[in-house]
């Protein structure tokens, strides 16, 4: 009797320990494991979580977030995540569903608190009036490239800090404190960027892909042409020539593209019409200066200012 009473709790403890060792390795080091679909959300989660979280970023600034392979490594990382932070608004529709289905992770499935979609906390622009594939790769919910407006980063950050606190209540106070600190620095930076960017208001620009509506609306840039004839459709030489002709009537100051996009269309137009082609970082890691969220906007504004009148 005595031995069995002793044995059962011991066994329980052993099984529990083994289970913990197998199922959550490294649980002692990082409380919250974050799987970020894009670098901007990975950076934001690091700012809020600090040493309390470990962040895995699924894609880099050199990759097209629309077209990512559902690689085995992504499935393995999603398997162990406590929190999935993605853009949503169908940006990841070509690969995230496979990752979710194959991950065997109940916590990050749709509708669970472990799934955080940034686009839900931001008013979306460019909602298509007509949903038809003949219009190219349109997103029904609106344009998903929300990270190019720092106000959106702030909106998403506030919601993300709340979500992280909800998932990891033991560290809630630390998340809130870190968020408050970040938010203060961020608001100051926004004020600085907006002052610097005053000459950009009304500046006419051409974009390669409709990836900058939030940046344009924030800084008051005027988009006069798009190089892609339809979203996701590569521009033909004929189409580029038409854009070049159009620019003679309505001149632009610069042609913008994201770092991951092919430089050829933008460079071709730049050469043809004598305006600079700017490779904006688009997200964290898009170039050497854009090492974090602050660097991302520092570099974006500086590049644009060089093209300003």
């Amino acid at each position: 009797m005595k031995t069995s009473l002793f044995k059962i709790p011991f066994l329980h403890r052993l099984v529990g320990l083994l289970g913990a060792a197998i199922l959550v390795p490294g649980a002692a080091h990082a409380a919250l494991k974050v799987f970020a679909c894009e670098p901007e959300w990975g950076s934001l989660a690091k700012e809020i979580g600090g040493p309390q979280v470990s962040v895995y970023t699924a894609t880099t600034a050199m990759q097209d977030p629309h077209r990512i392979e559902a690689r085995p490594s992504l499935i393995a990382r999603a398997r162990n995540a406590d929190l999935l932070v993605c853009t949503g608004a169908e940006l990841e529709i070509g690969w995230l569903p496979v990752i979710l289905a194959e991950s065997g992770n109940a916590a990050i499935q749709t509708g669970q608190p472990g799934q955080f979609m940034a686009a839900q906390y931001v008013p979306l622009l460019d909602k298509p009036a007509v949903l038809d594939r003949s219009a190219g790769d349109v997103h029904a919910a609106g344009n998903p490239h929300i990270q190019t407006d720092p106000h959106n980063i702030a909106r998403v950050g506030a919601a993300l800090a709340r979500r992280m606190a909800e998932l990891d209540p033991a560290q809630a106070a630390r998340y809130q404190a870190r968020w408050k600190d970040f938010s203060t620095r961020w608001q100051a930076a926004i004020t600085r960027w907006e002052q610097q960017a005053a000459p950009l208001r009304g500046m006419p620009v051409v974009v390669q892909h409709k990836g900058f509506p939030y940046l344009e609306s924030w800084l008051g840039l005027r988009q006069v042409a798009v190089l892609e004839p339809k979203p996701g459709v590569d521009p033909s030489v004929g189409h580029l020539a038409r854009v070049a002709a159009q620019l003679q009537a309505t001149p632009a100051r610069a042609v913008l593209r994201a770092a991951y996009q092919s430089p050829r269309p933008a460079d071709w137009l730049a050469q043809r019409s004598g305006i600079p082609a700017l490779a904006l970082p688009f997200t964290v890691g898009g170039n050497a200066r854009a090492g974090d969220l602050f660097g991302l906007f520092d570099d974006t504004i500086d590049q644009l200012l060089k093209a300003a009148p």
Partner: peptide, 15 residues
């Protein structure tokens, strides 16, 4: 507007 809390309508994850 930046200071005011934005009431973003939740974007439908599935249509």
């Amino acid at each position: 507007t930046a200071k005011a809390p934005v009431k973003a309508e939740p974007a439908p994850v599935r249509s």
